[in-house]
Amino acid sequence: MPRPLWSGSLSFGLVNVPVVLFSGVKDTNLHFRQLHAKDHTPVEIHRFCAEEDEEVPYEEIASGYETDDDELVVLTDAELATAAPRKTRTIAIEAFVDVEAVDPIYLDHPYVLLPAGDADGTARAYRLLLEVMAGTERAALGRFVLRTKEHLALIRARRDRLVLTTLRWHDEVRPTKDVPTPTKRDKPAKKEVDQAVGLIEALATDWDPSRYEDTYEKRLKKIIRDKSKGKTIDAPETEKDPEPVPDLMAALEESLAEITSR
């Protein structure tokens, strides 16, 4: 079992459940290193003071903030830590909301939340919360501090465990009003919409995440294999960009005819 990223407690009214947090995402990416070209020695990144041209040990690094009038404010880690909220080890549940009411635009990083240790009291309080959340289809909203950042988090039941997803703050979501959209003149005719809905329905399926695979990682693995055998890697051909069609209705009819004849 990996080490938890965070441990603390989940508080719900006056009930406190000691919990640990694990990432809900695995790193499946292939990683590259920077190498010294002549002998493939992996290079290391070292920090240097630009003024003194000397290497700086980690303890002598501080955080610099540039103010609007170009003044540099230097904060040590201890000073920066004073900004962290007091209850750093607690996720206090503030409200319960409908899971479906949370727009996916807010979702950030998924985690798995588990009871800390195997004390019976902890395990029972965890199961109680899990059972109630699964039964009511509600998710808990709370705040917590992970590393140095405060997050708004959504906690819900998924596959018989509690999972936590950090949420973006509302001012981190841009308004849609400045996005260029069609004008009233572009409004489609009812028969066009019906035809397009027909096309969507002909192509309708259930959501099945197992049907998608990371073709990029797959191709990258093959490229690495080929290269290690001394093969040349060719750049793939570029596809021609599609052009907008002049007659939407004709395009829809032709598409539907093609799908139904499959």
Binding site: T41, V43, E44, R47, C49, I61, E66, L75, L80
Partner: peptide
């Protein structure tokens, strides 16, 4: 809020340099 790394004693700029350990 983003910070940049500085030398604590005088706020000088820190550069990341690639070093060949060999």
């Amino acid at each position: 809020v983003h910070f940049r790394e500085v030398h604590a004693k005088d706020g000088s700029r820190i550069e990341h340099r690639r070093i060949c350990p060999k």
